[in-house]
Amino acid sequence: MAGNILEIIDLDVGYAGGITGLAGLSLKVPAGQMVALLGANGAGKSTTLKAISNLLPFEGGRVRRGTIRFEGRDITNIPAYKLSRMGLIHVREGRRVFSTMTVHENLVAASYALGKRAALDLSRRCDDIYRTFPHLERRKNLLAGYLSGGEQQMLAIGRALVGEPKLMLIDEASLGLAPVIAAEIFKVISRINVERGISVLLVEQNAMLALRHSVHGYVLDNGRSVLDGPARDLLHDPMVIERYLGGAGVPKAAERASA
């Protein structure tokens, strides 16, 4: 197990009313690496992230069986707010900035993930975020609801960084963004991963974008992993190309990417 910051073994998740979310999912995130979860709508990608960060109780779901280990420790029953204080921070789908609060207040709210260190580290952490996202600093006193979609996604990521995560779970970072902006967001995520050594597990509709930036990929179907391998290989896998990369037109782009 050495070297894996996150390990999921044989996980079953059910929702109220007997609906199955995950059925026997296993996966690993090696420390310091970026791993992508792919799959069709309803395959269980977001459910996986919510199971890890323990958000399922908010939606009437729960882990029925299996183990989730973070840094070797079973975290299945630890409340979400404690997990974020342990360094496991979930960037939710749809950006979810606190829209009635200013950009700066969004960062202050996120300092709760620092636990007791917050009082000492808050201004240092905010400065750090503003260095990484100079754009946000210029808008620090603007209500977050007035930011553009791309800026909101930057804020959502920056806000998670306030808490000095060891592992970030990022759900659909490119959703609803123009392709240029989505590419920029992924560059930022890559940079965070490489420069700060923060491990990343991401769920993404845009499989091409995700695989190009990840080391490893899992393809989910019906709540379990049906295929996994190095991202580079998945980009050339005929099944992945056909199902998730939009068929014949795409391999050229894939070759361009790996060239």
Partner: peptide, 24 residues
């Protein structure tokens, strides 16, 4: 106050507040 910010964050979006380390 920082607590005021946390109350407002909870009011704005409970689940996200919890994700940010706030004990809702």
């Amino acid at each position: 106050s920082r607590t005021g910010v946390a109350i407002r964050a909870t009011a704005d979006d409970q689940t996200t507040a919890e994700c940010m380390g706030i004990n809702i």
